[in-house]
Amino acid sequence: MTIQQTSRFKRYILPYILLLTILFCLFFYSLTLGAVKSSFSQITSCFSQEQSATICHIIAVTRLPRTITAVMAGSSFALAGAILYYITRNQLACPSLLGINQGAILGILLCLIIMPFISLPGIIAAAIIGGIISGIIVYSIVSLIGVSNLKLVLVGQAINIFLYALGQVLIVLFPDKTGGMLVTLNGSLAGTSWQKIQIIAPFIIVITLTSILLAKKIYLLSLGKEIALSIGINANQLLIIIFFLIVGLCSLAVTMVGQLLFFPLITVHLSKPLLRGRNPYHFCIITCLVGAILMLASDCLMRYIYTTQEIPLGIFMAIIGAPILILSSRLKRVQS
């Protein structure tokens, strides 16, 4: 009995405690970082009492939303990656490598060109529409060409590059209207604000909860359509829902932080060793946590190294993500 309990503890509870502690520490560490350094005690005093010091103002207006955005965007990218990984059973499947993110960006750019003064909900809608359209295009091209694990990545990457080129063309042609997007295009947390969080957060929370609730069905579907059907799951309907969940998560995250190539791939990779067993609920939640931690940690790192300069996070991600993609393309299971 005790053995079972310890193994259960090791399996489920320990990773949660570990991850939550790291996330908590990083959260506060992220608040101290910036052009103006501040200590932990200053931050706690800001939280505990009504303080009007400059540092409290900085924290409340820029650092706190930035940190919260990092957590939200990181976890939603990660969740999208986890769902896609489950469905395709493909180590290499990653929404950012399949052109969905890039499609969302293209949607935003087009929207900004047509209606430069559109409010934030309009931009979100444009991102989601862009993501959906590119998702449908990828899906149809992949099914036209034939799905093998390695091919999926190549097709996705080709479409990614294509959409990237279109986006760059738009930026060249309309520099005055798309200039505002330039910062977030390469993946950066610089463009965050409370207003963005207020609008996007409810959507993300709803989609995240739905996905986690659906995790069991998604897992069953990943065993095969026939199995899912025999248990009484409407596979096609579920697939459509999953598609919208993934696209929604990616597009919303893209609206907040822009394109982060390889990010979901990295998180899925990092979170697999943390969990033995195949419990889909745990997998989803742990991937979310790992995503949030990864995003916060890399943002902190970038801010620690370059205090006065804004280095896009996406660049950092590509540098650590490319080796991971190569490693996972060498895994035996992928080739079969």
């Binding site: 290499l92 390695l150 990545v153 990457q157 300069q309 660049i315 950092f316 540098i319 993609l325 393309s329």
Partner: peptide, 25 residues
């Protein structure tokens, strides 16, 4: 065949990101 290209594309992304980093820094 396919893996060669995937690795190449990944390496490409890596070096391109590094160049962008250089440009910004």
């Amino acid at each position: 065949h396919l893996r060669l290209i995937i690795v190449g594309v990944a390496i490409s992304a890596f070096f391109r990101a590094a160049s962008q980093f250089m440009l910004i820094a």
